[in-house]
Design a protein around this nucleic acid. Structure first.
Length: 368
DNA sequence: GTATCCCGCCAATTG
DNA sequence: CAATTGGCGGGATAC
């Protein structure tokens, strides 16, 4: 009931609550339990209250890091956090080996386009004799087609994004530079935009998992991301961020249309409200009564990793260091100086293409 | 303004 | 053919 009441005043639609990051967190919370071995897409979609399309996004990204693995249509294996270290290790190796760092021989910084073939025995784990690997001798046509699509997939993009962090010594990477690097050739604006959009998606879920963290590039002040999980022995991620906004894991809410709650269109709204309240689904609602301290609210994926709350499983003291460290950059003082920003604006374009290119190129190559 | 990035159309794949 | 997958980018939000 309260929801209805409140609806009169509040936005009624909050983009942040619908972010992939939040969805990912919920997804993780929902399946990170003992006994879980597989994930059904339909199940996930309904339990989390989102459209199937979104589940694909999350799952594809998570698959790149080993958290889940494709089993069959509509079904994924649940590997959990424990599978992450291994997956990252594999990605790193894979990235170091193949072209990844060496690639920048020519002037155009290209890293991507790796044909993802050759050795391609990228089976994360043993076992799992799997998917469409119709061995045999014939594979040229059928294979290339499938691969072709696979090449643009979120799955691959994610892997490459990770490799960027793992294989280069760049601590800070802007999505633009990442897009640039992972684009390879076509530098046209639209392609870039699309790629960046995807990277935002990926960055979102990674942020929610604390694999990366958003900051700002020291000088340029441009938003950039920093890799948090140390590839070494122990990953210090574990524990995705707590759920935000109450206890409801479902993501039912109003669509983008804000619509004035005063007039028509009420049908859909109330409909949603109904479901929102119910959240009936099963008994496995992970309840975590968030204390609404307005301070500990974890609003979206991009909030600086906040210490706060006495975390249940206190096995993450490792984070502290990095958190403190990042604080410096995170809390970078922001000042709006007309002249400066204006001047900067003029250089922005040049800077964008210049810096991005140089940074990506130089840095990546340096590793080898 | 700029940075983010949700949403869902619709094409490609699968079954 | 229907159902699954999942590119893609328009345009709404957040800051």
């Amino acid at each position: 009931m309260s929801i209805l009441e409140e609806s009169g005043r509040q936005p009624l639609y909050c983009r942040k609550e619908k972010s992939l990051g939040v969805l990912c967190t919920n997804f993780l919370n929902l399946y990170d339990k003992d006994g879980i071995t597989s994930v059904g897409l339909d199940d996930a979609a309904s339990k989390l209250g989102v459209e199937r399309r979104r589940i694909y996004d999350v799952v594809n990204i998570l698959e790149s890091v080993g958290v889940v693995a494709r089993k069959q249509k509509n079904q994924y294996f649940w590997k959990g956090y424990d599978a992450i270290p291994k997956a990252l290790e594999a990605l790193k190796e894979e990235g170091l080996k193949e072209n990844f760092c060496a690639s920048s021989v020519c002037t155009s910084s290209k890293v991507s386009d790796e044909k993802e073939n050759g050795v391609a025995s990228d089976e994360k784990e043993n076992g799992v004799a799997n998917d469409v690997r119709t061995e045999g001798q014939e594979n040229s046509s059928a294979r290339s087609k499938a691969e072709n699509k696979r090449e643009k997939s979120l799955w691959l993009l994610t892997k490459n994004f990770v490799k960027l962090f793992l294989c280069s010594d760049m601590e800070l990477i802007t999505l633009d530079s990442a897009a640039m690097a992972l684009l390879g050739d076509s530098h046209n604006l639209t392609t870039m935009r699309t790629k960046v959009r995807r990277l935002y998606d990926i960055a979102n879920v990674f942020s929610s998992m604390n694999l990366i963290e958003k900051t700002h590039h020291p000088e340029s002040r441009r938003p950039a991301f920093r890799w948090l999980a140390t590839t070494g022995t122990t990953l210090n991620l574990k524990e995705p961020k707590k759920r935000s906004f109450g206890t409801d894991i479902t993501n039912y809410a109003f669509k983008r249309n804000r619509m004035e709650s005063s007039v028509s269109g009420m049908s859909t709204v109330s409909d949603n409200i109904m479901r929102c309240q119910n959240q009936e689904n099963d008994g496995n609602k992970l309840k975590q009564n968030m204390q609404h301290t307005s301070k500990n609210f974890v609003f979206g994926p991009f909030t600086p990793v906040n210490r706060s709350v006495t975390d249940d499983s206190g096995n993450k003291s490792l984070n502290r260091i990095q958190e403190v460290q990042s604080l410096a950059t995170t809390c970078y003082p922001r000042y709006h100086n007309e002249a400066v920003s204006d001047l900067f604006g003029h250089y922005q374009e040049a800077w964008k293409s210049w810096y991005v290119e140089v940074a990506a190129k130089e840095k990546i190559r340096k590793v080898l």
